[in-house]
Structures are given as C-alpha cells and as structure tokens.
Amino acid sequence: MSLSQEPAFSVLKNDFVTGYQDITGESYAGVSGVHMPTGNAVATTNGAGPHNLQTFVLAPDGTVMTCLPGYWAPQDLVSELRLGQDLYKVWTDRSLSRADKDQRFRYMQQAHLRSHPPQEARRSKMQGFDQKYEAKNRLQTSDCILDSRLASVVLEKGMKPPMGAFKTTDQIMHDRMMQRPFVPYQQFDVVAYTDYGRPFYNKNEDQRTATGEVNKDLAKGQPLMGNTAQMPGMAKRARRQQQGQLARGRMMNRGAGYYARRGVQTFVRAMR
C-alpha cells in the first residue's frame, strides 16, 4: 500500500524504473493470507513481513544499493530510495578504489540510520509476534536482540519488552546492509538478509470488524499463499479446514434429505 501513497508514488514514477517478481515458492518466501485487490488493507510497521516482501534498489548493472525487508511507510521508503541514489554516485565514482567505495557504503548506511527521526524509529518497532519468535528461537544469537535478559521478558504471557531489548527494524536493515557493500543482485543472500521474525505474516485485513478487531473464526478459515507446505502447523490447519468442509457437507445432505423426503426438490438442488 505504501507504494501508491505520496511521496512514494511520484518518486517511484519519475525517478526509478519499477518492476516486480512473484516470490511464491522461493526458499526464502514466507506465508501470508490471500489478500484480494478489492479487500481491506491496514497500515503496519516498517520492516513487518520481511519474508513476504523485499524492495531492492539496483544499479543498472544489477548491483544492490540497498534492500528494504517488508513493508515501509511511504516517507521512510522515499528516504531509503534517496540513499540508494547517493550510494549509486559512490558506486560510479571512478576516482575511488573498491575498498574506498565499500568503506563509504558502510559509513553512509550508518550515517543514514543516525539521521532517522524519532518518529521513524517509532514506526520501525518490531512486531510483537516477531519479537517473541526471536526470543523463543534464538535468544542468545539473534542480531535483532540488544539485551537477551530484557528480551526474554516477551516470553512471559502478556508482557511487553522494555526499551533497549530489541533493535528497531530500521537498525536491523542498516546493520545488515553494512555487511553487504555493493553486492551483485544474483549473489545477494536474501535468505539470511530477511531472516528475522516468524515466516507467517498476516494482518487478517478482510477478517476484521468495523472497529478493526480480528474475527478469529473467519481468520481460521482464511486461504493462505506462499510457502505454506513449510509452515509449522500447516498440515493441522489443512486437516481442520477439510474436516470443517466435510461437516458442512454432511449437515447439508442431512437437511437436503429431510426436505427431499417431503418432496421439496428445488431446495435439494439449491443445497447441492
């Protein structure tokens, strides 16, 4: 959604060549609920859904200037696109050696992070379920965790992490990009780069009430897309959906049989 909003829309249209690829089936792709173009949408936090969406800024020779994992607010996206353009100037500067370029790349990524306003840091708070995933699965090794003792608080029911437990997603992005100066797109390790939080990301946009709360019954039956086969609990979910369909079918047959015995044919056909 952020791509269609200003200032992102005009910047993309006027200053960049745009393209996309469907990553369904790719090893690094996550899982999401199917969201139709006419369905509802919700704004989310920067860096949410890193497995399902990645925005690369590429030089015409295919070198990666930067890559944004997940969703980004329009104004923050534009700021990162401008960083990509500044990095391209460094990349094409013939007076610099490769080592100098790499050094400047790291410096500019770091400087850009420092220039983010506090509002952007607030928009870049990692989703609670992603924090839980990191704390549960890699408390001591995750590069998203600043303090493992503080981060472990999220594992207690109903508890939120204190300040300084987790990095914000803008920090994760710039820290990870600093380790990947001017990498060709074909060699860019998308799996490692986008690896934070759980692979299943879904805001249940079409399963919400008027006040924005999720209708859990509707959400359970929602079709999914992406690497569903690799999702933990997917077999159970598919079995549950199949059982639900069978039960509904049995109920309809029972109802249809009752009316058929009484000669109500139209109703039987409609039920079937």
Binding site: G19, E26, F56, L58, Y185
Partner: peptide
C-alpha cells in the same frame, strides 16, 4: 511495471535511472 529483471535493468541503463525491483507474494 517490468516483470523481467534483465529488461528492467536495460531500461535503467537507457534512462540513467536506478531500478526498484520488488519481491512479493502475488
């Protein structure tokens, strides 16, 4: 919206613009 990366890069080289290449589900 290009769906071929080589074509998008070619257009980038022709126009002198960077390419925003999006990986997405769907």
């Amino acid at each position: 919206w290009y769906t071929s990366l080589p074509q998008a890069l070619q257009e980038g080289a022709r126009t002198g613009k960077l390419v925003v290449w999006i990986h997405m589900l769907g």
